[in-house]
């Protein structure tokens, strides 16, 4: 779907601004500068306003997504189930750092998604995986990257 097609599914009312931004983010995996411009025109707001709203929310991406985005929950519940060590081990194994930008592989910390009982929880390119261990995470990453 194109940006315009997605926009047309939403009535140009203020309460549909966030749903429209979300829909574009979901369908195209990110919200480009071009998209911000189109959303602004469609809802009759300034580009600055639309960007200020969109940038408030964690789910919205403004960079073309990396090949792989790995998010690891660091809530206290997942933490006592060893999520902290998984972060460290992934950092050393793939020689990357949390929050550093790289067009291949991005590693982030994530807030609780309410699946605490099945922790530690990780999210890979938007898909949630539960009951993770370092070995399982590394295997998943290698599958995604096609090693």
């Amino acid at each position: 779907m194109t940006i315009q097609e997605i926009l047309l599914q939403h009535e140009p009312e203020k309460k549909n601004i966030l749903p429209a931004i979300k829909a574009i983010n979901q369908n195209l995996s990110w919200v480009s500068e071009e998209a911000i411009g189109k959303i602004a025109r469609y809802f009759g707001e300034s580009e600055a306003y639309i960007f200020s709203v969109a940038s408030f929310y964690d789910e919205i991406n403004f960079n073309k997504p990396a090949l792989l985005t790995l998010e690891i929950c660091d809530g206290a519940n997942c933490q006592i189930k060893d999520s902290d060590n998984i972060i460290k081990n992934v950092e050393t194994f793939f020689k990357i750092k949390v929050d550093s930008f790289n067009n291949q592989f991005v590693l982030k910390r994530m807030s609780c998604v309410g699946r605490c009982l099945e922790g530690p929880v990780v999210k890979i390119n938007g898909t949630i995986y539960t009951k993770m261990t370092t070995d399982k995470v590394i295997e998943l990453i290698q599958n995604y990257l096609g090693y």
């Binding site: 549909n16 966030l18 979300k22 408030f56 929310y57 964690d58 789910e59 807030s111």
Partner: peptide, 21 residues
Amino acid sequence: AGAYICGEESALINSLEGKRG
């Protein structure tokens, strides 16, 4: 869209209105 503060009622309302939460 992923913001803890939107659980606060007035932030939630702002978010519903298409503003920053």
